Amino acid sequence: MIYPAIDLMDGGCVRLFKGDFDLRTNYDGAPTDVAASFAKAGAKWVHIVDLDGARTENAAQTDLIIEIAKSTPINVQTGGGIRNADQIAKLLNGGVSRVVLGSIAVTDPLTVMSWMDKFGADKFCLAFDVHINEAGVARPALKGWTQSASTDLLSIIKRYSAYDYGALLVTDIAKDGVLLGPNVELYRNLLARFPNAPLITSGGVGKLDDVKALKSLSPYGIIIGKALYENKFTLEEAITCSPSE
């Protein structure tokens, strides 16, 4: 399934280059209109990131995200700066289908697990934006991608193995916003290690062949952002294309 992405800053649609807040591109179009266009093109889900919230660790775009969820016929998966149960309840009650938890899923797993028990694990997407070191070890990034966790990605995923969460999102930060191809090997290895994980890939898609390569892995979902905004291909093409052989 294709998840077109909307990254929000200051109420508008933006994209970052390798997660750098200083390397930001602004795009025209109200976020509600962009989400509506995705739905019209055939997308069933949209992935929305509150970048202001991610940077400050305090959700800032909640009302706009709820407006999108209520005004467009598309399932909304969203995160960024979510730090308490009240924020989660507001989003879910406002029509959001799935809440994305990133840094806090690394730094405070017991709290996250308590939220899963409270709201239902299927209401959550665990999102890990990773730096990959020279040894090939992936470690989640923290604090708006400015720090790396001491615990490796595989160990963190295992920690949540008892929960039937809605999705597992992994982004290779080095690929994000670059349009030079996704880290297919990373996702292939993760699916081999965790074959039942509802893995959503993210980062690096720059052409339709990248989408086909990812589809060949049969992931749960594929997030596409900048390539759509830069008109590298259409959302309809991404949804309907066949996996590469």
Rank of each mutant, 00 (worst) to 15 (best):
V178A: 06
V184W: 01
V34S: 00
P195M: 06
R55D: 06
Y160R: 13
R98S: 02
N189C: 10
A89T: 12
D176S: 10
S242Y: 05
A105R: 01
N189P: 08
V46R: 02
I223C: 06
H131A: 14
I82E: 06
I222C: 03
T107Q: 09
G166D: 04
Y163P: 05
N231I: 14
A127W: 03
K215I: 14
S150P: 04
I156G: 10
N75K: 13
A174H: 13
D7Y: 10
E237S: 12
R188D: 05
S244R: 04
N84W: 03
S150K: 09
E185R: 12
K70P: 11
K232N: 13
A197Y: 07
F194Q: 00
T234L: 07
L64K: 07
F128V: 00
P195K: 06
G144A: 06
A35W: 01
Y163E: 13
G204A: 12
K90C: 12
I2H: 00
C241L: 15
V100L: 15
G29R: 02
I156N: 09
C241N: 05
A5L: 15
L101D: 13
K40V: 12
I74D: 03
G94D: 12
A69C: 12
N84I: 10
A5R: 02
A36V: 10
D7K: 05
Q87W: 13
